[in-house]
């Protein structure tokens, strides 16, 4: 591998890692508070991409506005999922997980029947051109992903550590019983967690819409990666999810460059199996007492 290829691959890895981080943080967040495991997280990502397709591709809104629209829309989908699926099944993690697998089916059909299954919806690239980076070129559209991810993660960090509602959310994740004793409303906290979770998946999908082909089944590839990241990071740990996302971004991109995408997926899965065997609590996970 020569130097320009190496730099190119590193740049691609950082972009991939940023996207994985934004997706996986939402998944880890929902799992941390009230053990909500959302199989339809990949379909939320897909929904985010379709929001951009509709508002930017069909209605001609400016691209940033379309991306911002994805956050409340998919966030609202998260809240609806929490109310209709996770709240009734809150005593059984697996039931909620399986029910969201059903939800994933439903979203795929609804989107497919509304906007068509066969043809890929290609969203025109809003930012043409590429950034020069030591002799290699990285498309602006890809570069844009990195500051967006950083902004989103910083906002989330600020919310969780500096804002009262965010602190309450963390308290819920640590110990729901004690949190309730402090007068925290668990009911609204789980809704908040799912809103953030949905919003993060929607944002990631919206950012990737001009880069990836937009299809009803695009969430499928995302969900496996997202779960690998979350399991590697330690299920509930947000910092762990970010770290694991970056690691997996590098592993996937480098293996894809050297070999092919299928091998990259296999290596990713193998990494996860290794973490489960050697360190079942994940890279940054705590061992529950």
């Amino acid at each position: 591998m020569d130097l320009p290829t190496l730099i190119q691959t590193i740049a691609n890895s950082v972009v991939a890692g940023s996207v994985y981080a934004v997706i996986a943080v939402g998944l880890a967040m929902a799992f941390g508070v009230m053990k909500m495991a959302n199989f339809a997280h990949g379909e939320f990502f897909m929904a985010g991409a379709y929001v951009v397709y509709v508002f930017y591709g069909l209605l001609g809104w400016p691209f940033p506005a379309a991306v911002l629209m994805a956050i409340p829309i998919v966030g609202a989908m998260g809240v609806a999922t929490e109310r209709l699926i996770f709240w009734p099944t809150r005593n059984n993690v697996l039931a909620g997980f399986m029910a969201t697998a059903g939800l994933a089916f439903m979203l795929q059909v609804l989107v497919g029947q509304t906007w068509g299954v066969g043809l890929m919806r290609s969203v025109p690239t809003p930012y043409m051109g590429a950034m020069d980076l030591a002799g290699t070129r990285v498309g602006w559209q890809r570069v844009l992903v990195i500051p967006s991810a950083i902004a989103m993660l910083t906002a989330l960090w600020f919310f969780l550590y500096k804002v009262k509602a965010g602190k309450a959310l963390r308290a819920c994740a640590q110990d729901p019983e004690t949190a309730r004793l402090q007068g925290i409303n668990i009911n609204s906290m789980t809704m908040l967690a799912m809103a953030i979770s949905g919003a993060s998946a929607g944002l990631a999908g919206a950012l990737m819409a001009p880069i990836q082909p937009v299809t009803p089944y695009m969430g499928h590839a995302v969900i496996l990666t997202a779960f690998i990241v979350v399991v590697m990071g330690g299920m509930e740990s947000i910092a762990g999810a970010v770290l694991a996302a970056m690691l997996l971004g590098f592993v996937h991109t480098f293996v894809t460059t050297v070999s092919d995408a299928v091998t990259a997926q296999m290596v990713g899965v193998a990494c996860m199996a290794l973490v489960l065997v050697v360190r079942p609590q994940g890279l940054l996970g705590r061992v529950k007492a």
Binding site: I85, N92, A95, A99, A101, L103, A104, F105, M106, Q108
Partner: peptide, 20 residues
């Protein structure tokens, strides 16, 4: 045919939520 996953997904959710 095309709507079948929607139907089956709905059935799955219904049973898990209402008839565990």
């Amino acid at each position: 045919l095309e709507w079948r996953p929607l139907l089956f997904g709905g059935i799955l959710i219904f049973f898990l939520v209402a008839l565990p």
